[in-house]
Design a binder for these strands. Structure first.
Length: 456
RNA sequence: GUGGUUGUAGCUCAGUUGGUUAGAGCGCCUGAUUGUGGUUCAGGAGGUCGUCGGUUCGAGACCGAUCUUCCACCCCA
């Protein structure tokens, strides 16, 4: 055998069964997006580099896949730049396009570019693959799908409410009960930093705080100190490490902690609004929770922050996330457009549904019936029936070769096809079909109309 | 990007301190059974031991590089 072919690191092939199951999730999400009034858009797989570069921070730039220019691109590079061998400086000269890194920045570009055709508020969803030159881990790939829904052009808090309901609707539909929708607000995080007089260290503060469930209070304290936040300041804020009780209890505690911060109080107000609305319109299967440690890197969020955790009995990171960003389109020159969006983690949802065995059997849209091929004449008789079955919406096929019966039966068995039709000279003579149920092994002689009825 | 880890048949894995012709289970193919699959029985095919290089009389095993897998960081979905 020749050298076995392979696929690049962090990419995957999907088998027919995997595609069916992924499609089931995507269709469910899509349906709910549409119920909530979102419209689909699609953007190119690659963008101009300057659209993407610098939007995700230094770390992000490193993880963007760059596309090499066409033609004899090295000839155009100046000699001194070439001999310098500085990749960072050379890259923009030899690569002017890059693969999409997420869906949010291309969306912002889309909104700015088409601002005169768009009716605001603009509710769009987008389900497309994105690429990251990351080092893969479990549930982390270099090519993966994002399922995003965003609204731009409205700063109404009803959007926050709606996104909580959207999460609930999707996971309810997927029969994934007991997910936890965790909310926080960037203004509360700003409030914390303000209260301890470390507003300029907000990022370091939140990055450390976010690790609370992982490294504990001690670890967080240590990391904050390493970043130059005084022990005294940390002590002032330490009550937030052990907030407990209901959403309302936590709100009450926060009101005390953030009493001196206008920004903080605004954040509390926003969370309270959402909580009260959801109280009047209870969620079907999800729980809404407040988690002040929620921060994850997402530096462009300015208001609400969402994260969805899988049910407690499954060990899995977040299966969705999002938040409000007040000025995303600002980077492309369109100011004062507020946006809010959420995302579903397709791959992780897949793993969770698999673990809990929640995929319906209908997720496989398999062939329902296969006709045994007995030879030229019989195949024509079978093919005519196959055609009519297909017209009746039944997935049907004819085994293409007049192979041994054993082989054909075995094929049906392997492919998990529930019914087999035998139509040889005997059946043709009587204008009927022998239908065999592969599970029970029973078989009957039927005319065509009964055959259709049975298979429908 | 940092540190570690993994790779032997289609799949899951054995393979002793370096020593003839690299094994098992499952799967696959053929037959018993020329219009009846799953069970059983008999037989068979399938390997450049991830790749390239090195050490050695001799490498699946030791060394180096590289690719890949998974994990912890970084970061993030």
């Amino acid at each position: 055998m020749a050298q076995k072919p392979s696929i690049p690191k962090g990419t995957r092939d999907f088998s027919p069964e995997e595609v069916s199951k992924r499609d089931y999730i995507v269709q469910t999400i899509k349906k709910q997006f549409q119920h909530f009034g979102f419209q689909p858009i699609e953007t190119p797989s690659f963008e101009n580099s300057d659209t993407l570069m610098g939007k995700y921070g230094e770390e992000g730039d490193r993880l963007i896949f760059k596309i090499l220019n066409s033609g004899d691109f090295l000839r155009k590079v100046k000699d001194d730049l070439y001999t310098e061998k500085d990749s960072l400086k050379l890259t923009p000269k030899i690569s002017e396009k890059a693969l999409r890194y997420d869906l949010t920045v291309p969306f912002a570009r889309y909104v700015v570019q088409h601002q005169n055709e768009i009716d605001f508020p603009f509710k769009r969803y987008q389900i497309q693959p994105v690429w990251r030159a990351d080092r893969p881990q479990k549930g982390r790939f270099r090519e993966f799908f994002q399922c995003d829904a965003d609204v731009v052009g409205s700063d109404s808090l009803w959007q926050e409410v709606e996104f909580v309901q959207l999460y609930d609707a999707v996971f309810t539909q997927l029969k994934l009960d007991g997910v936890s929708i965790k909310m926080n607000n960037r203004k509360i995080l700003s409030g914390f930093a303000e209260v301890i007089g470390e507003s300029d260290k907000l990022i370091d503060f939140t990055v450390a705080l976010d690790k609370l469930d992982k490294i504990g209070e001690e670890g967080v304290t240590k990391e904050m100190q390493e970043k130059g936040i005084s022990a005294e300041a940390i002590k002032t804020i330490s009550p937030i490490f052990s907030l407990s009780g209901s959403f309302l209890d936590k709100i009450a505690s926060l009101k005390e902690i953030l009493a001196s911060s206008e920004t903080g109080k605004k954040g509390i107000e926003e969370l309270e609004f959402v909580q009260k609305a959801i109280e009047k319109m209870p969620l079907q299967t999800a729980n809404l929770d407040l988690d002040v440690t929620l921060a994850r890197g997402l530096n462009y969020y300015t208001g609400a922050i969402f994260e969805v955790a899988a049910p407690a009995n499954v060990k899995m990171g977040s299966i969705g996330g999002g938040g409000r960003y007040d000025d995303l389109t600002g980077i492309f020159g369109l100011k004062n457009i507020s946006g809010i969006g959420i995302s579903f983690g397709l791959d992780r949802i897949y793993l969770v549904l698999e673990e809990l065995n929640l995929f319906p059997t209908s997720a496989k849209n398999n062939t329902k019936v296969i006709f045994i091929n007995f030879g030229q004449k019989e195949a024509l008789y079978a093919m005519q029936a196959v055609q009519k079955l297909r017209e009746n919406g039944i997935n049907a096929e004819l085994y293409p070769d007049a192979a041994k019966m054993k082989k054909q039966m075995n094929y049906a068995n392997k492919r998990d096809i529930p019914f087999v039709v035998l139509a040889g000279s005997k059946e043709i003579e009587n204008k009927e079909f022998t239908l065999k149920n592969m599970k029970t092994g029973e078989q009957d002689n039927l005319n065509f109309s009964v055959l259709v009825q049975t298979l429908k």
